[in-house]
Simulated assay, not measured.
Amino acid sequence: MLELSTEGWLLAILASMAVGLAKGGLAMVAILAVPILSLVMSPVQAAGLMLPVYIVSDLGGLLAFRRDFDRRVLKTSLPGAAVGIGMGWATAHIVPDRGVTLIVGLIGLVFALNALIRPDLSARARQPSPLRGSFWGALAGYTSFVSHSGAPPYQVYVQPLRLPSVIFAGTTTWYFAVVNWIKLIPYAALGQLSPANLKVAAVLTPVALVSVWVGLRLVRIIPQALFYKLITWGLLAVSSRLVWQALSG
Rank of each mutant, 00 (worst) to 15 (best):
S194D: 07
A202E: 03
V200T: 15
L204K: 10
F176Q: 09
T172E: 02
L204F: 06
W233E: 00
L236N: 03
S165N: 15
I182D: 02
A196K: 10
I222G: 10
Q159K: 13
F227I: 03
Q159F: 06
L230S: 00
R217Y: 15
I182W: 02
R217L: 15
L226F: 01
Y157K: 05
R220N: 15
G191A: 09
V178K: 02
L230I: 15
L163V: 09
Y157I: 06
V203A: 15
L218N: 09
V178G: 04
A202D: 03
N197F: 07
Y228D: 04
W181M: 14
P164H: 11
P206R: 06
G191C: 07
P153W: 09
T205M: 09
T173F: 00
T171R: 01
P195Q: 07
A177F: 14
F168H: 14
L235V: 03
T171F: 02
V210H: 00
V158C: 06
V158Y: 03
L235A: 03
K199H: 11
S165D: 05
V210Y: 03
L198A: 10
T205Y: 01
P153E: 11
T173P: 04
W181K: 02
I182G: 01
L226D: 10
L190E: 12
S165F: 01
T205R: 03
N180F: 01
P186C: 10
A188W: 12
N180P: 08
I185R: 05
T172N: 11
R217E: 13
F176D: 05
N197R: 13
P195H: 04
V158M: 12
L163A: 11
S194Y: 03
P195E: 06
L204W: 07
W174V: 13
W174Y: 15
S211H: 05
L193H: 11
R220E: 13
S194T: 15
T232H: 03
P186W: 10
Q155Y: 02
G215Y: 11
G170R: 06
W233V: 04
A202P: 05
T205A: 14
A177N: 08
Q224L: 00
L184G: 08
S194R: 14
K199F: 08
Q192H: 11
V179Y: 06
A177P: 08
G234C: 02
Q155E: 10
T205H: 03
W181A: 15
R162T: 13
F227S: 02
Y228S: 02
Y228K: 10
L226K: 12
L193A: 09
P164C: 09
Y157H: 04
K183Q: 14
Y228N: 05
I167L: 11
F176A: 08
Y228W: 04
V214Q: 07
S165L: 12
P223S: 12
V158T: 13
